[in-house]
Write a protein that binds this DNA or RNA. Structure first.
Lengths: 209, 209
DNA sequence: TTATCTTTGTGAATCAATTCACAACTTGGC
DNA sequence: GCCAAGTTGTGAATTGATTCACAAAGATAA
């Protein structure tokens, strides 16, 4: 089965979350234009994405929500689930832990790492916190495949080396330092400052017109 | 002057930050391929972006770093600076406040808002914290043009309404709820869960090959 | 039965972003 | 002074993402 384009994966993730909300208001079916409206995109875009899942709607009723959530799940999720670690339990790490806690049944946040002795050994936001010295062994024994880097910048490069060595498969990097990792590790970087500067630029532009 | 494509703006922001780092190691010139290497993109990409700035290198020496930083600045930054508010001083708001503090001289984080009485009236991470009831008036009197939404999901829609009414010009939304705003407000949304699900998907895919 | 309505699924077209390919150009070496 | 080297700037080509445009289909109503 073909690997989906990154953009489509992002939107599928969004579709699913919106659909889960809709379930609560016991809606059964949804039209492509309704879903599009919620996400502020076009209906064709939605249909294209769903097309890639090879799933079809019920005629003139739209897509059955429950079924659609399921179909998205079978494509996006790993059947066995995947274990995730938060690396750096500062404010950002905490925020993520809270956000992610229990939100996706197939993504289990199973460990956090920090250097702060106050935190080590404690369970914070439902997640056990280990020292950095236990990073390698814990990632291996707990079969953690995804690491979320939320350490302060000065520590980023050093910690990244450790993480790479530990045999992790994917890294989501919230550090401001762009990382270099071997090509068998999937790396996704997000930089909040860049986002803010982008907003600032377009505000400036819109303003001057 | 032409408005730059969003992608280019993002990269320019990155270039500048990397270049500022390089200054500290008193490097004077940089080749396009060096900058490309740091950001893990191609040299042509870098040159294309810089081309849009209408700025040229010194022959066979590369781009003078100091000058390049300046040129990026005159294009991205608002001369007068722009004021930013953090809306929701939870973990994520705190993380952002710390990150952004002083990092961009033209982006002044001048206020934060929260409902927590413990926080209101205090100065946290160098930023004065107000109650939500003072949101509208503070945004107006302090001439805040950018709002960073870091409130919990349940509050997102309600707070967004307030923010839109306050006459803000741009919103960076870290909430998981997609917002609908009038077209004269620039909206940038970022969803951490989607990023994590994307990493999870590609880890799964890479693994099964 | 037949016409009408509405929404989908998708080929083709368009628009946007990236990469290829190379002429142009100084500078440093000889 | 001339040649070789190395890097840039950019037109053209390619790749990727989005939108257009419309045939297809089955439910509904007359």
């Amino acid at each position: 089965m073909e690997t989906l384009p990154g953009k489509t994966v992002e939107r599928l993730s969004q579709y699913r979350r919106r659909l889960l909300n809709l379930l609560e208001e016991d809606k059964e079916f949804i039209f492509s234009h309704e879903l599009a409206e919620i996400l502020q995109i076009t209906a064709v875009q939605v249909r294209r994405d769903l097309m890639l899942l090879g799933y079809s709607s019920v005629y003139r009723k739209g897509y059955p929500i429950r079924k659609l959530i399921e179909v998205i799940g079978t494509r996006l999720d790993n059947v066995k689930g995947q274990n995730v670690a938060i690396i750096g339990m500062g404010n950002l790490g905490m925020a993520l832990s809270h956000y992610l806690y229990g939100i996706r049944p197939k993504l289990n946040i199973v460990a956090a790492f920090d250097i702060d002795k106050e935190k080590i050994g404690k369970t914070i936001a439902g997640i056990e916190c280990f020292g950095m010295d236990r990073l390698d062994s814990t990632i291996r024994t707990m079969d953690i495949s995804i690491g979320v880097m939320t350490v302060p910048q000065f520590a980023a490069l050093e910690v990244a080396k450790l993480v790479v060595k530990s045999g992790i498969k994917g890294i989501l990097n919230f550090t401001h330092i762009p990382l270099h990792v071997p090509s068998d590790i999937y790396l996704e970087e997000y930089d909040m400052i860049t986002s803010l500067e982008k907003v600032a630029y377009f505000v400036k532009e819109l303003d001057s017109q």
